[in-house]
Every structure is written in C-alpha cells, then in structure tokens.
Amino acid sequence: MNVLEVKNLNVKIDNDSIIQDVSFNVEQGEVLAIIGPNGAGKTTLFKALLGLLPYNGEIHWAPNMRIGYAPQRLEVEKHIPLTVEEFLKLQPKTITNQKIDEILKFIQLDKKILKMGLGEVSLGQRQRLLIGWTLLGDPDILLFDEPTANVDIYGQESIYKVLAHLQEKLKITVILISHELNVIYQYASKVMCLNHQNICMGKPEEILNDETLHNLYGEPKKFYRHEHQ
C-alpha cells in the first residue's frame, strides 16, 4: 500500500526552480533514503511534503496519516527556560511519564536529562530528543532530515542505532535524507537520488555504485562498503 504518492512535483523559491518534475511513491513500512549533493533540494522536498512551501503538482498522503518530522537541527538559545521534559510534553496530546520513560530507553538517554535545559544538552543528545519527540506523537511515517548532521561520530553511531531499532521494533515508514552511504546501504529499502530532479531510484544495491554516484555528485565518489555488525 502506498502511504505517499508524489506526481510531477515542482517547487520554486524566488523564481529558482529547486524541485523539477519529481515523482515517486512510498510504501508502508519502507525506508526511503534520499541522497544528493548540497543544494540539490532535499530539504525543500521535505518542506513541500509537509506543506511548509507552496508547490505545483500532486502530493497525496494516505488518509489520516500522522507525520512525524525531525528537522535538520533545532536551534535553541543556550539559556532557554525550557527543560527537556517540558519540551517532550509540548506534543499536542497528553504525554504520560511512563511514555516518556519508554521513549528515553528507546533513544538511549538517561532519565537525568529530563531536568536539564533544552539548550544545555549536546547536539547529539538534542538530535535524539528530537527523534524521541516525534515518536511521542505516535507517527505513521517519520521524515528525518540528515539526523546526524552536526553530530560527532559517536553521536552518529547511536542515532543510527536508534533508527535501526525503530525500524525493527515499530515498523514505521521512514523517509530519510542522509549523506551516510554506508548507513543507507544497511538500513534503507529504497534510495532516491535527487539533484533538483529524481535522477535515479531503486534498491540500495542497485543504486549505490560508482557510476550512479558519479552522475549524482558530478565527481567520482568512491563507495566503500563496510559492514556494521
């Protein structure tokens, strides 16, 4: 079953054509990874999907889909008077403490973090909290915009563990923007190469080879597989 159908999508920002004639479908339970160079329109595509930007073409979500969205980063002031716990409870529905405990286990953070200020936690922790926040809304589909950008290597590792866990346990449909080809190889069921247009689409093993990556990034980009255990 398709949970999302996009047909002939065009998005312009200040007369610049950022997304040109992009069409694709996402099936229930799938993990679609979107790859492409910087400025290729990946984040713009997400914003159009969420209705944050005007577009031409068709975007059809399956009825009553709850969409969870984790933006690339959450810019908050260091001394913002808002604790992590309060942030998690800003979900529109009532969030019980038990539910928060479950989510914290899931994103592998200690309960102590709840009393800390949202601006005080590290970027990696904040990124995981962002994932946790979206999960608290019981989403049917998650949109992740480069969940590991600006996060150090150890933070990245744990964020991807969370993603893998998410996929195994909750079977949630995920659309993911990422540059981490190894991660995509391991977790994604489908890959879309975006450079303003939908250049290629298919299973990771079909897409992630030197030739398509060369076409996409415009320069030789070697892809070395290394297997995570």
Partner: peptide, 11 residues
C-alpha cells in the same frame, strides 16, 4: 522552539 515542528503536528 520550532515553527516547523509545530506545523508538523497540525498547528
């Protein structure tokens, strides 16, 4: 905190 987050939950 984020107008994108609030939009994504239907605000």
């Amino acid at each position: 905190v984020s107008d994108e987050l609030s939009h994504s939950v239907g605000i």
